[in-house]
Design a protein around this nucleic acid. Structure first.
Lengths: 224, 224
DNA sequence: ACAAATCGATAGTAACACTATTAATTTTGC
DNA sequence: GCAAAATTAATAGTGTTACTATCGATTTGT
């Protein structure tokens, strides 16, 4: 796993960036520090000026890589879902039983993400904290339909579709597979958020994990 | 229902406003037009200056009612959840069977909201569109813990708790009641959003409703 | 009738979200 | 090895946002 990922460039939608940050040291630096800075101060308080200072460069250099901070967040989200998709495909490869594949898939999209030490400039654990806190803002804009048309959400949709197809293999008659999967994927982010900030809205604690909750939920739902 | 609501002032957290908008014509105007304006241009593009012009007043007058636009959104959200809670309490009153109560409750928090013609200055249908599009932004800020401590989310938490207690009546051994309810309430908003903007992630269409999906989901989940 | 509250209008500030220009440095293509 | 091309850092500038402060004019309460 570790070695594989370090040799494979995860696919991110071209239109999210002006210049590919993977092609230069400054670009990788920018990605690494933007993840740390957004995590520290939150997306609302994050600006390209602050990021420029942080990487000991300046605002105008950041603008050469990304149009604006929304596109940067789109890039980070796109990378994150691509990373999960890769792990899902890898972990379910060659497993015949769709019920086993489903359980593995649920685990990957609902468990807390740990840092994968091989992608040097991206701390996956911190990136997942950003996704938990900020991903909803990627979609909830007035430009969502336009951006959807341009394909910005393809990777996210493909990840959803993969799990939908496993469910349809198990029970082709269950009529809400798409809604169930999108509920689980975005719900899992939300449960991690609630267990940290609004505990009374969540049953998750040291004894009960997000994965257990959703595994139980899906298993019981699709059998009928 | 209609007559009752028009005589009862829904409780909204005091700290969300500087001056209660319900106490003046300008205030009610401000609420009515802010709902329409946020719906039209989105919360990111919404400013107090634009709102001031729209109500033929000005920026500084709006600031006399709300500290900033985040607090205004908090007020609208607080009002919305209070409205749903009221409808839920009213609709489940005097019904003994908890399974029936649960089904009614699920319907109220997952169905599309129609305009209640009695609150003259608030269009509930449009307000619910705003909540679907923007509610996640109310919570996903760096100030969430502070605001939670100050009680800004009490109404939302109380609504969740009401449904949790119905589930615990039906099955006291189900270990994930809080997570299930918060998944359903925020998931329902998300499903409405997806069915409008990212259809492939949702199973909802003219033949299948959000309520049916969640009723099926909850029923099957809590029985085991 | 008088005081207090409310409102509309204007002005001002710091930060944000960019765009444009330029000069220095680095990379590359031959 | 060198000229051309690309990249970068730095500066300046513009319009907008998110406020704060002040000040008369009007309305309201007693």
């Amino acid at each position: 796993m570790r070695e594989l990922i370090s040799n494979i460039r995860l696919q991110v939608h071209q239109k999210t960036f002006v210049k590919d940050p993977e092609t230069s040291e400054l670009g990788k630096n920018l990605i690494r520090e933007s993840i740390l800075l957004i995590d520290e101060i939150g997306f609302e308080n994050f600006t390209f000026k602050k990021l420029g200072e942080r990487i000991k460069s300046n605002e105008s250099s950041v603008y050469r890589y990304f149009e604006n901070k929304h596109k940067l967040l789109l890039y980070l989200a796109s990378w994150y879902w691509s990373y999960l998709e890769y792990r899902l495909v890898f972990a379910t490869n060659n497993i015949e039983d769709p019920c086993v594949r489903l359980k593995i898939a649920i685990g990957i999209v609902t468990e807390k993400v740990l840092d994968d030490t091989d992608t040097a400039h991206i701390n996956e654990a911190i990136l997942s904290r950003i996704i938990i806190a900020e991903f909803s803002k990627v979609m909830h804009t007035k430009e969502v339909d336009q951006e959807n048309k341009e394909g910005f959400f393809l990777i996210y949709k493909r990840l959803n579709a993969r799990i939908v197809s496993i469910i349809k293999e198990i029970n082709p008659n269950y009529p809400f597979a798409e809604s169930l999967v999108s509920t689980v994927i975005s719900g899992a982010l939300h449960q991690h958020f609630l267990s940290e900030h609004l505990e009374s809205l969540s049953s998750i604690d040291s004894g009960k994990s997000v994965s257990e909750f959703y595994t139980h939920l899906i298993t019981n739902t699709i059998q009928n």
